[in-house]
Computed example of a mutant assay.
Amino acid sequence: MENQEKLFDRSVVCTICSQNHTTKKVRYRYIRALRSDSDFCSYYEDEENSPLLYYVSVCPNCGYAASDEFSTYFPPNSKVAIEHAFSSGWKNKDYGKKRSVKEAIEAYKLAIYCATLKKEKHIVLAGLYMRLVWILRKESMTDQEVRFMKLAVSEYVQSYSNEDYESTDMSQVKLLYLIGDLYRRLNDEKQAILYLSRVIQHREETLEKRMIELAREAWKEIRESQKLNLKSS
């Protein structure tokens, strides 16, 4: 199957400079996930055309990068801050074609920069960090993966505290589980148990039984690891 048949052009109007541009997306029928990690990182049959690579669109005219989760609202002075940030250094690079992993990583970092200047919701920033983590993991860029995982969990915790995940696709139970799992991956067992326990406490009041099962499995693994460490010490 030719790559151009798997990808299609989506038209985008930049909310900063109002210019039209196109960004690639993967046709849904060609997205086939083979397996996933405990933090929902999916491994695709065709990683060369992974939808992760095209989650972010980048305006070639002004450099503004965003995902579909970005709000249309701009806080006071945020547009000016973004325009100023790109006014002298942007080189009109076109990310609207088939992307390499390197270009996808660049696009995510641009979107994170723009989201920070725009003061986007914590849940939006966390989603950008998390998807970047998944790409870095697949590329075995461990140090960078850990760096951005720490940023992701920090944003998820702030999203939970501020409840800015409400009215999004992220539920409270899934958010708590994800925070707990990320802390577990970062070897912060105390925080991992704290958040995973909160998930398990929801067992009688949620339809998300899979989240409860995942949290219980992760909690059990941490406890067993702690017991082994005590025996060996």
Score class of each variant (00 low, 15 high):
residue 32 R to A: 12
residue 58 V to H: 03
residue 60 P to Y: 05
residue 63 G to M: 03
residue 54 Y to K: 01
residue 64 Y to E: 08
residue 39 D to Y: 00
residue 65 A to M: 01
residue 44 Y to A: 01
residue 42 S to L: 14
residue 47 E to H: 09
residue 44 Y to V: 00
residue 40 F to W: 08
residue 30 Y to Q: 10
residue 27 R to P: 01
residue 44 Y to S: 05
residue 26 V to G: 11
residue 32 R to N: 13
residue 47 E to M: 14
residue 42 S to M: 14
residue 65 A to Y: 04
residue 63 G to I: 03
residue 27 R to C: 07
residue 57 S to L: 04
residue 52 L to K: 10
residue 62 C to H: 09
residue 50 S to A: 09
residue 58 V to S: 03
residue 51 P to N: 07
residue 50 S to R: 06
residue 29 R to I: 13
residue 49 N to Y: 05
residue 59 C to E: 05
residue 51 P to S: 04
residue 39 D to G: 09
residue 57 S to W: 03
residue 50 S to T: 01
residue 38 S to R: 02
residue 67 S to G: 08
residue 49 N to M: 08
residue 57 S to K: 06
residue 42 S to E: 15
residue 36 S to L: 10
residue 47 E to T: 05
residue 64 Y to V: 03
residue 46 D to P: 05
residue 35 R to Y: 06
residue 29 R to V: 12
residue 36 S to Y: 04
residue 49 N to A: 07
residue 44 Y to K: 03
residue 46 D to G: 06
residue 49 N to S: 11
residue 49 N to T: 09
residue 53 L to G: 00
residue 67 S to A: 08
residue 45 E to A: 12
residue 57 S to I: 07
residue 52 L to M: 13
residue 29 R to M: 13
residue 54 Y to R: 06
residue 54 Y to P: 03
residue 29 R to T: 12
residue 46 D to N: 11
residue 56 V to H: 03
residue 65 A to C: 02
residue 63 G to C: 06
residue 33 A to I: 13
residue 67 S to H: 01
residue 40 F to E: 12
residue 28 Y to N: 15
residue 54 Y to T: 03
residue 63 G to D: 05
residue 43 Y to K: 12
residue 41 C to N: 15
residue 58 V to C: 03
residue 39 D to E: 15
residue 52 L to R: 10
residue 56 V to Q: 04
residue 46 D to C: 06
residue 36 S to W: 02
residue 65 A to K: 01
residue 63 G to R: 01
residue 30 Y to C: 11
residue 33 A to W: 03
residue 29 R to H: 14
residue 68 D to S: 12
residue 50 S to M: 02
residue 61 N to K: 11
residue 45 E to V: 06
residue 34 L to M: 12
residue 56 V to R: 00
residue 36 S to I: 04
residue 67 S to T: 15
residue 27 R to W: 04
residue 58 V to A: 01
residue 50 S to E: 07
residue 26 V to Y: 09
residue 28 Y to F: 12
residue 27 R to M: 05
residue 53 L to H: 01
residue 27 R to F: 01
residue 43 Y to S: 13
residue 63 G to T: 00
residue 57 S to E: 07
residue 51 P to H: 04
residue 31 I to K: 05
